[in-house]
Design a protein around this nucleic acid. Structure first.
Length: 713
DNA sequence: AAAATTGACATTTTT
DNA sequence: TGTCAATTTT
């Protein structure tokens, strides 16, 4: 038996033991939210609730599996039977089960963003809309407006008016495209991400027996990060739980950061109104951060006009104030970050230190420096694993065996072949479809004799269809087929891509069914091996991807106007509020150390100059007594050393980047050197002009730029 | 019809 | 920076 009273504070205990009826938990940052959910899962199971009747909806698959694992440890038993995942993943599962009731007797497939773009492109070419018009927006831009309108459940017109007033004249074109896109999706039995949610809602409202079934299966519903749900997600939660059902939602209105994709803080604010009699429980004790860090985050919080008043307090009274660091440029900032990481790495393991930023590309200069210094890092956010071209190629090839055949997979797969473009791919796809329905494979055969590559591919597919192999051995065969194409297309960074494919092999090995594997890849539902925190790697992450996580040390970079808040947000007060919540989320990730980096200038690629930038208005609002201002000291790192300009260049000055060149040096092998993160090591080999292979005790061999080494006499 | 080339352009955040 | 779309060449 678990001693709940001893393990939980009173508010947490109430949240855990209130199992009947609707419950809203307002969980301040670091208030033990995950702990509360985990204990509640354990409590329910201990009370005799069958695990499979608990539905745990989280923002990411990773969050769900982490909670299930911890609950399992607590109970000393497997919690794998608890149902859960993302709204999209859950929707997919239910929709698959009832596909015929949706009007898809053959089943359906899910498109990711790239697939949707491809389909949309076809539709647009067909309609000949905006052809040759240079100011006609890109397909992905149009799709993003369509998606935004759906997610916010407002008209396309109002989205265009608020987000892109200059495109007003194209509105009719957009509407035409939208309609045709809708029809094409229907025709091909394809659902995009948004469809998953809306189709589930339709399924449940149109088919009372299905709703009844779902309600009977899931007697207990728990939704994490409720402040980031959109309207349809909230309606789904309500449908499944029913008005008087056992539903607990957990969230923090101060951490709502997904408004841009339709998340509606109103969901969490109106919860007591939607579910009359709901218990509202606030978790206010912070277990994560030191008081100095918390004081600063509370200062941000107080200027935000939160709706659920919170008074976060900490028991950790120790610790230093957060630091404000103002490097002269973004490159100097990269150097300063490295210096700080060096200091911190003596106290914390690298994976317990995180550098956070507003947008993925803000980290580029830092990544360059980290690579030069051979400091391993792992980046979260930005481009996703399954969006990389080579991964998409391979997945498309695998999807070609699916029945019914998917046109998008066939087009991409066939497009790899020499001499095959869009037209031929379309023709061959048609030929394949007729060969399936009428058994007439003559046209395919004809092309097979003409095109050796095509014959090889068809051979591969037939073998898999006749005698289905496991996903991983099928992948092996597909890779054998694909490797020559990869080598031809991506000579430059072959190793990186090959290691990506190896990751894919690892992921695949966890699956027995091809269809489940492919669907999970589209929904980003898998637990990619690469996503697991590597022990020896510094963490780089967008703030969005850092949500729900914590580190002992957090370094927040590029706190300047135009970047944070982003330029686009500065027009709209609502967007500005969301940016500020984003800052709040970022700062509350820190346990002990919080470093705020405000570079004074930023290199502009377009002009080639460093541009003067202003500190973020959010930083200016923070009470100066809450942080210590650190004078940037000269370090050994090149970002600082090579950039002597104190306050950033004036207009007209040449960018320091152009004058950047690592000097050649001739240090012989056999000597010793010091590295700021790895310590003292022995130089094994000099790699001219300026790299060295160094062996660090306990770390191993590293190849490092001479800029980052202090050589001993 | 496919492949190669040029030229423009955008650049938040994610399921 | 790389990516996308229009253009020219094969």
């Amino acid at each position: 038996m678990i001693d709940y009273e001893k393990s939980l504070n009173p508010a947490q205990l109430e949240a855990v033991t209130t199992t009947r009826g609707p419950v809203l938990v307002i969980a301040g940052a670091g208030s033990g939210k995950t702990r509360t959910i985990v204990y509640r899962l354990a409590y329910l199971v201990e009370q005799g609730v069958p695990p499979e009747s608990i539905l745990l909806l989280t923002f990411t698959r990773k969050a769900a599996s982490q909670m299930l694992r911890r609950a399992g440890e607590l109970l000393n038993r497997e919690m794998g039977m608890v149902s859960g995942g993302t709204f999209h993943g859950f929707s997919y599962m239910i929709l698959k089960k009832f596909a015929p009731a949706l009007g898809f007797p053959q089943g359906f497939s899910v498109m990711d963003a790239a697939d949707a773009e491809e389909l949309f492109k076809g539709v647009r070419n067909e309609l000949k809309v905006g052809q040759g018009d240079k100011s006609f927006p890109r397909n992905r831009t149009i799709l993003s407006y369509l998606s935004k309108a759906r997610n916010k459940e407002v008209s396309l017109q109002s989205i265009i008016e608020s987000e892109a007033a200059h495109l007003h004249d194209y509105l009719e074109d957009f509407k035409k495209l939208e309609e045709a896109y809708l029809l094409e999706k229907q025709k091909q039995a394809l659902l995009d991400f948004d469809d998953l949610l809306f189709f589930l809602e339709r399924l449940l409202t149109d088919n009372p027996e299905v709703l009844e079934y779902v309600r009977s299966v899931y007697g207990y519903v728990m939704v994490d990060e409720y402040q980031d749900t959109n309207l349809v997600q909230a309606r789904l939660a309500r449908l499944i739980a029913s008005d008087q059902g056992n539903i607990m939602v957990v969230g923090d209105d101060a951490q709502s950061i997904y408004g841009f994709r339709g998340a509606d803080v109103g969901n969490i604010l109106d919860f007591p109104g939607t579910f009359p009699g709901a218990r509202v429980i606030k978790l206010e004790q912070n277990y994560r951060s030191t008081q100095p860090v918390l004081s600063l985050t509370n200062c941000i919080l107080s200027s935000m006009g939160q709706k659920y008043e919170k008074n976060l307090f900490s028991t950790r009274t120790d610790g230093a104030r957060p630091e404000l660091i103002t490097p002269s440029s973004d490159m100097a900032q990269a150097g300063a970050v490295l210096s700080r990481v060096e200091e911190l790495s003596s106290r914390y393991p690298l994976h317990d230190i995180a550098v956070l930023f507003r947008a993925a590309y803000h980290a580029y200069p830092l990544e360059v420096e980290l690579n030069k210094a051979s400091i391993g890092y792992q980046k979260f956010g930005g481009m996703k694993f399954s969006e990389a071209a080579h991964i998409k190629d391979v997945l498309s090839l695998m999807r070609m065996v699916q029945d019914p055949p998917e046109i998008l997979a066939w087009k991409r797969g066939l497009g790899l072949l020499k001499g095959v473009g869009p037209k031929t791919a379309q023709r061959l796809y048609q030929a394949y479809c007729t060969s399936l329905t009428s058994g007439d494979g003559s046209e395919l055969k004809k092309f097979e004799t003409k095109n050796e590559q095509f014959a090889g591919l068809m051979e591969l597919l037939r073998r898999q269809k006749n005698l289905p192999a496991s996903p991983s051995s099928f992948l092996t065969e597909v890779l054998d087929f694909y490797r020559p194409f990869l080598e031809e297309k991506h000579m430059e960074d072959l190793p990186r891509r090959l290691s990506g494919l190896e990751q894919l092999e690892q992921i695949t090995s966890a699956y027995n069914h091809l269809e489940a594997f492919l669907a999970d890849m589209v929904l980003e539902n898998s637990d990619p091996v690469g996503m697991q925190a590597r022990e020896d790697a510094l963490v780089l992450s967008t703030i969005h991807s850092a949500k729900g996580l914590e580190w002992s040390a957090v370094l927040l970079i590029d706190l300047v106007e135009e970047r944070f808040p982003s330029r686009r947000a500065m027009q709209d007060p609502d967007d500005m509020d969301e940016e500020q919540r984003l800052l709040y989320v970022a700062c509350t990730r820190a346990r002990d150390y919080l470093g705020l980096f405000v570079p004074q200038s930023i290199y502009q690629r377009s002009t080639g100059f460093n541009q003067r930038v202003w500190p973020s208005p959010f930083v200016r609002e923070i009470d100066t007594s809450l942080y210590s201002k650190v004078k940037e000291q000269a370090g050994i790192f090149s970002g600082e050393k090579k950039n002597p300009q104190g306050d950033g260049p004036l207009p007209g000055e040449v960018s320091p980047r152009s004058s950047r060149r690592s000097q050649t040096s001739a240090v012989p092998a056999g000597g010793y050197c010091r590295h700021k993160v790895f310590g003292r090591g022995k130089v094994v080999q000099a790699l001219p002009p300026n790299k060295y292979k160094v062996n660090f005790p306990g770390v191993g061999l590293k190849t490092i730029s001479g800029d980052y080494l202090n050589f001993e006499e």
